[in-house]
């Protein structure tokens, strides 16, 4: 459904229409701080809306803000930060949805949080078949431990 690039030109034209005084926010394909800044400058929108790039990577918001404020890239989140984000997500998922649904609905997210980690496939399988939240937390600790071992 989303194979072609977003057409921002027309969004810019709407923003620059002298009749329009409501805020216009652009949306579509923003997946990096550079793009957010580039589109801001090029199309003059009042802000941007981010969808898919935030999935498994809620850090995108602070990354864009940092880049806008300093012109420098914020260091990417560490593995530990990414795993902690998954853990927070899991915990609040259980708190809000209940034990069963919280655990099950979290399964679609692990892959996004752990994307690009070495040997993540097996760990993802274990996370996605486990029902006990205590074991899930241990598995997340294991990811952090494995990575620390590998990085050492």
């Amino acid at each position: 459904m989303y194979k072609g690039p977003a057409d921002w030109t027309l969004i810019g034209e709407v923003k620059n229409n002298p009749r329009i005084h409501i805020p216009i926010f652009g949306n579509g394909d923003i997946d990096s701080p550079e793009k957010a800044v580039e589109y801001r400058e090029r199309y003059g929108v009042d802000g941007v809306m981010i969808g898919r790039a935030s999935i498994g990577h809620p850090f995108i918001f602070r990354e864009i803000k940092h880049y806008m404020a300093t012109g420098q890239q914020l260091a990417p989140p560490t593995i530990a930060e990414r795993v902690e984000a998954a853990r927070t997500h899991l915990r609040s998922s259980i708190a809000w949805k209940g034990l069963y649904e919280g655990v099950v609905e979290m399964r679609r997210h692990y892959g996004n949080y752990l994307k690009g980690l070495p040997n993540v496939k097996e760990m993802r399988l274990r996370l996605c078949t486990e029902r006990d939240p205590a074991v899930l937390e241990d598995l997340l600790d294991e990811v952090i431990g494995n990575y620390a071992a590998e990085a050492a």
Binding site: A6, I11, F25, N27, D29
Partner: peptide, 8 residues
């Protein structure tokens, strides 16, 4: 507000 998205 209007958040315009793309029409691919």
């Amino acid at each position: 507000r209007s958040a315009s998205t793309d029409a691919r």
